[in-house]
Design a protein around this nucleic acid. Structure first.
Lengths: 235, 235
DNA sequence: CGAGTTTTTGATCGAGGTCAAAGTTTGTGG
DNA sequence: CCACAAACTTTGACCTCGATCAAAAACTCG
């Protein structure tokens, strides 16, 4: 019975939980905007302008548009897609709660890829203009920014590891990476909801969707994972 | 006759040329250290402490060591090598004249990989401690640093494109990337000296050296390149 | 010049791609 | 709430491209 199978996957949610501001990488930056010393009535703590909500499949921004802001993912998942010179669409990154989106656009001032929500998502928006102002007022903020960007470089260098070696290693590495990143944010890293399609995973790992499907089955048959549809449990 | 063949490759040098300070990515940072207003005798312009010279195969630094400085490549070529969790050694980047090495270590404070000279090389060294001081004295420097790091993220995101798609595309993309990067520094992008071994290229592109060798031959037979040993000319 | 390394070439094999089709889930409108 | 269409996923059969194993050739450097 289908419901019984579902029940065997405790904790697997259809959407990621929202995370606290303190668990977000953008927190190091946006905490700098201190609230007024004695907040009068009607004054709210605007340090985080967490207004943006995106339904599934909505674009956060598109390649080529001016980069106006950094975004912190508070809830949900997104993907960055680039069009390669030969017209192929490639998924180059998945963004989980707590990740910062838009760092790579600071230099060029334009976004280099499309960012699309994979499920209903919520994001904090930190306008670049405001960031510039803060940088001159608070030199110590530069440290945080450098930290953030340097970490982004390190992570970007780690990614190619996922597109190397045998296929089962790539797939398992991909799953493990999601798991580790979720746990680092205080979320459950063992019960995953794969908000991205098999096609997205295949594009990211440079494989075919049939290969993804077959490899996931092999991992399941080897009892490394428990899988049903997009619910996944690490064993 | 061998010498005649060599002569058919005009401009291909056995080592890269040195580049001017102004063409180096580190220049935006180290120019900030202004020389004294009226330099007396014996005072030299120390804005760039360009002391480091490395013979071929020498280590600039090793994984795990504390990251003490940023390095600007003035001459030569280097590679960054990482040991993957399963003990495999992988080339994750090649560094050409004008590139900055060490950015990815700022966050962790430790180097995440070995950096090794592929030919006799010269580097400028900018101690992180001095950088920290400058950042507090000159807030406008933060802009340059952010620019630099954001660019590094963008480039790191571009790299995976080289390990995707058909083999001849990867190899041609790799060569084209070297070419474009050299030209951006004002060097000759059509006549390349491949200072890295076929093994290094294979590791970087996640292929076998036999495949690299065969693919280069195919590109040569298709008249896309002129190749002899490590001398390469784009057509 | 000669030993050791790097690169090239050949023959064979298998992992992953391709093509085709069935099965499952999701979303929409009645 | 159900029915149905569309999209996504799984499975099977076959084949190609790059890996592997082996050996010769070319290059490096003392």
């Amino acid at each position: 019975m289908s419901n019984a199978s579902r029940a065997a996957l405790p904790g697997a949610l259809t959407t990621s939980c929202a995370i606290a501001c303190e668990a977000c990488d953008l927190w190091a930056i946006c905490r700098s905007q201190r609230p007024p010393a004695s907040p009068g009535p009607g004054t709210r703590d605007r340090r985080a302008s967490c207004a943006q909500r995106l339904p599934a499949a909505a674009y956060l921004f598109r390649a080529g548009r001016p980069a106006r802001a950094l975004y912190g993912v508070r809830q949900g998942t997104l993907k960055t897609v680039r069009i390669s010179p030969d017209g192929e669409e490639r998924v180059v990154a998945f963004h989980l709660p707590g990740d910062v989106v838009g760092l790579e656009s600071l230099a060029a001032g334009r976004h280099s890829g499309d960012v699309i929500a994979l499920e209903p998502s919520a994001l904090c928006e930190l306008p670049v203009a405001r960031l510039q102002g803060w940088l001159t007022e608070m030199p110590e903020l530069a440290r945080s920014m450098l930290q953030l960007l340097s970490g982004a470089v390190t992570e970007a260098w780690n990614r190619p590891e996922h597109t190397r070696g045998a296929v089962w290693q790539r797939v398992e590495g991909f799953i493990g990476d999601l798991s580790v990143r979720l746990e680092r944010r205080g979320l459950d890293g063992r019960h995953l909801w794969l908000s991205m399609s098999r096609t997205d995973i295949a594009s990211y790992l440079d494989l075919r969707i049939e290969t993804i499907s077959r490899t996931l089955r092999q991992l399941r048959e080897a009892n490394r994972i428990h899988l049903r549809g997009r619910h996944l449990v690490l064993q």
